[in-house]
């Protein structure tokens, strides 16, 4: 009994703190383009959303996908093609990209959810590689060159997205909508069932949930949101290339999420921010980038086993716990 009240008290306390932090975070993001290079910030936001979408699957459902680049890069291609070749407005391009990612997610998920653990990861990887191959061969992706010079256009025919601040706030809006959607999903009854599947799948089955359907739904949602991030990225950088669908991209999002901490809302955002910042600063500093990234990953795994944010949460909880007991 005492334990639960303590937890509840802690929960309300930390919830208030979290809300305050979220408000500060949003305020910081609104002010950020006046201090930092907007393209860099937008890249961070796109990858943060990508990582959050990935985390929906890994952190809250316990499924490690090794093929999320398919949704990110696929959506980027669809969006870029629609906007550039068909002359669609940007919002329609993003919608198409997102919808395309959802379809891809449905197909990949259909095959993948039949297996668990590393085998699940392997099916997603293999299917993602096949999609990569499709992108290399399909004429609309223009092979190695990718779709270049995608116009940003006018959002809803009004807002000129070629202006740095306009596009930044649009991307920020998309990011916030995406993260909010994930937060809603995670904290809905549906999200609870996902977590119960993660904790104990056979228990969830015995309780009468059709686990396969829930997993597939989670997979498609994660794919859709990853697609949203990818389509937005295509508009920000004005190109879609093969790099976005390679397995390295799938690997990158895994790293971001793990580095930040799986199963937390903030973790993937911090992870993405950290990785993107590292890449950018190191890539332009003359310092050997690759070795630094490699070493940082190794150290992070050894020091922060639950990811940076996960570890901080855990430490905080134990310290609060012991503090109350004393």
């Amino acid at each position: 009994m005492a334990e639960t009240t303590l937890q509840e008290a802690r929960a309300t306390g930390s919830a208030r703190l979290e809300w305050a932090l979220v408000a500060i975070g949003i305020a910081a993001l609104i002010a950020a383009p006046f201090f930092f290079y907007p393209v860099f910030l937008m890249k961070m936001l796109c990858f943060a959303l990508f990582a959050c979408a990935f985390n929906l699957l890994l952190g809250y459902t316990g499924l490690l996908s090794f093929g999320h680049a398919t949704f990110f890069g696929g959506a980027a291609y669809f969006c870029a093609h629609a906007v550039k070749v068909w002359g669609w407005p940007p919002e329609a391009g993003i919608l198409l990209g997102t919808a395309g990612a959802a379809v891809l997610g449905l197909v990949m998920g259909f095959f993948a959810i039949r297996r668990q653990g590393i085998y699940f990861a392997m099916i997603t990887l293999a299917l993602a590689q096949m999609f990569y191959f499709f992108c290399v061969q399909a004429p609309f992706t223009r092979g190695e060159d990718g779709i270049q010079g995608v116009p940003r256009g006018h959002l809803f025919g009004l807002l000129d997205l070629s202006q740095p601040h306009n596009i930044y706030y649009t991307v920020l809006g998309i990011f916030l909508i995406g993260v909010f959607a994930i937060w809603r999903i995670v904290n809905s009854p549906f999200g609870m069932i996902l977590k119960s599947i993660r904790e104990n799948e056979s228990r969830a089955i015995s309780l009468g949930y059709s686990v396969a359907n829930y997993k597939l739904a989670a997979f498609v949602m994660s794919a859709t949101l990853a697609g949203l991030a990818g389509a937005t990225k295509a508009l920000v950088f004005q190109f879609a290339t093969l790099t976005d669908v390679t397995w390295q991209m799938s690997g990158e999002v895994i790293l971001m999420t793990l580095l930040g901490g799986i199963g937390t809302m903030v973790g993937p955002i911090v992870g993405a921010g950290l990785v993107v910042t590292l890449q950018n600063t190191l890539a332009t500093s003359g310092f050997p980038v690759t070795i630094a990234t490699g070493l940082i990953f190794m150290v992070c795994v050894l020091v922060f086993r639950r990811g940076i944010v996960g570890e901080i949460y855990a430490r905080l909880l134990t310290s609060v716990g012991t503090g109350k007991k004393e």
């Binding site: 932090l21 201090f35 921010g273 950290l274 910042t277 600063t281 940076i308 901080i312 905080l316």
Partner: peptide
């Protein structure tokens, strides 16, 4: 805790700004 996260993020962003400028 998250203060620490924020500070960490701030420090990184700061470093990024210095390096890139």
């Amino acid at each position: 805790m998250s203060n620490r996260t924020l500070r960490l993020a701030g420090a990184i962003l700061g470093a990024a700004a210095i390096l890139s400028c």
